[in-house]
Design a binder for these strands. Sequence first.
DNA 1: TGCCCGATTAACT
DNA 2: GTTAATCGGGCAA
Length: 191
Amino acid sequence: MPKRLTRSFFNRSVLEVAPDLIGATLLFDGVGGRLVEVEAYHHTEPAAHSFRGPTARNAVMFGPAGYAYVYRSYGIHWCLNFVCEPKGSASAVLIRAIEPTAGLPAMRRRRGVADERLLCSGPGRLCQALRITALHNGLALDWPPFELFARHDEVEIVTGPRIGITKAVDKPWRYGERGSRFLSKPFRPEV
DNA sequence: TGCCCGATTAACT
DNA sequence: GTTAATCGGGCAA
């Protein structure tokens, strides 16, 4: 039986939690799969929503670790984050891509596409496939409808610059599973 | 109040 | 390769 991730798992540096999430399993109402791509956001750098202090939108980031922070992106999409570090650090991991393993018919119905590589490969796409919205902002990650299980196999992790940001672009805080077909974008091959 | 722009996606050329 | 869709946060005035 796979090991469930507890809140203490998230109560560490966001730079430790992010790579440990690669290969873990995320289910939401029984729909989901294997995490293959995440990004770390730390409150001390300007790319993080929490950089300028607490607001109504980012309040969950300033709470304890182990909760979901969901926000609207570009006025259209939803993005899912896991809050990390001791309360007040306001750091989180953005979930960017999942390899679908459970509930594929529901995902196809919600996304309107058949190709399984297009179901959850991107932060907005996976929220649409799992039907995650602002209603779920602030929910605990160790309690239904969320279910999280630690990886039980070895994974090769690659890192690179984060996607879609204009500030702190030098930080290589994007993590992915090497060779996965389900990444939102390829990682630049290492030299 | 008004303006700019974003942790994106899909549909274009 | 480019661009529209769409809306709330953040900041200037």
